[in-house]
């Protein structure tokens, strides 16, 4: 059985619990093991690494060291954790001196790390390891007629571009097509949502997210699919503010790509946190009723 060390990350514990639930449910359904890294800590996020480099990398590396002990590669659904953990790996490989420094810090906790763990995003695992042919054989409901804006966000392909093109990624589009949905033309699929700027520079972030929603609606999308907790939160939770600020009446559901896959696989909506969204994805109800029969 295919198995990964699961690194949920802080957002998936709370604000993005629907992402956590749906990743676990989908992987379980597809027979892929997810063993949560016991006692994992925050990856440090951009905020730590950008202001305190070696400290940031060292706490990030604790998670890598724990996964190395498990003898498994990591599955990290949060795009930010995914990029940070990959950057940590890259940094340790780059310079023996830096590897030594980080290992010296890890030694304070009786840990060590020698870059044997690969960091994988669930989208990569689903499309490239499981494969879309297998997915097609497992689906109970095709999402016929559902028009989806595939929003990749930034850090899933940038800066590393390990499993998809940095300018024109297609893996999510392919997955959506495989489950019968229609990915709409979405020129902003890689445009930044502003991430944490929603907290620090709200006006600016509202502008960015207004553009992202408008592009999805203008291209006739019923729903936006995301692969990152920050993107989902900004696009969903701030729609009210965007409407007020720009005089609009948007009410477009913003889901995780794993929730759409789960609907197609016949997973009950509550098991994927579809009841925990702010903008109710009513349009999906037709599809999961069918799946539950």
């Amino acid at each position: 059985m295919m198995e990964f060390a699961y690194y949920p990350g802080c957002s998936l514990e709370h604000t993005s619990s629907p992402y956590d639930k749906s990743v676990r449910a989908v992987f379980d359904k597809l027979g892929i093991g997810l063993k949560e890294i016991e006692d994992w800590n925050c990856c440090g996020a951009t905020m730590y690494m950008s202001v305190k480099k070696i400290v940031g990398y060292s706490i990030s590396a604790r998670n890598l060291a724990l996964a190395q002990k498990m003898g498994l590669d990591i599955c990290a659904p949060c795009s930010s954790c995914y990029t940070i953990l990959k950057k940590t790996n890259r940094h340790i490989q780059w310079e023996p001196k830096e590897r030594d420094k980080i290992n010296e810090a890890l030694a304070a906790a009786d840990l060590s790390y020698d870059t044997e763990v690969r960091i994988r995003h669930p989208l990569d695992i689903i499309v490239n390891d499981i494969g879309l042919d297998k997915i097609k054989n497992r689906i109970l409901t095709t999402l016929d007629g559902l028009k989806v804006a595939p929003y990749y966000g930034c850090q899933i392909v940038r800066p590393h571009g390990e499993f998809d093109d940095v300018d024109e990624p297609t893996s999510m589009d392919q997955m959506l097509t495989a489950i019968g949905a229609t990915p709409v033309h979405y020129p902003y699929k890689l445009r930044c949502c502003g991430g944490v700027l929603m907290t620090t520079e709200e006006d600016l972030a509202l502008k960015l997210n207004h553009g992202l929603i408008a592009a999805a609606v203008d291209n006739k999308a019923d729903i936006i699919a995301t692969a990152c907790p920050l993107c989902q939160m900004n696009l969903e939770a701030y729609q009210d503010k965007i409407n007020k600020r720009f005089g609009k009446k948007y009410s477009i559901p913003v889901v995780y790509f794993t929730q759409l896959l789960g609907v197609a696989l016949g997973i009950p909506p509550k098991d994927m946190g579809l009841n925990r969204l702010i903008v109710n994805p009513k349009i999906l109800s037709g599809y999961y009723k069918e799946a539950l029969v």
């Binding site: 070696i54 810090a105 304070a108």
Partner: peptide, 12 residues
């Protein structure tokens, strides 16, 4: 463990 790592790295 996390605190020990942070303290050690800070010394560098």
């Amino acid at each position: 463990e996390v605190r020990a790592i942070i303290d050690k790295a800070n010394q560098m």
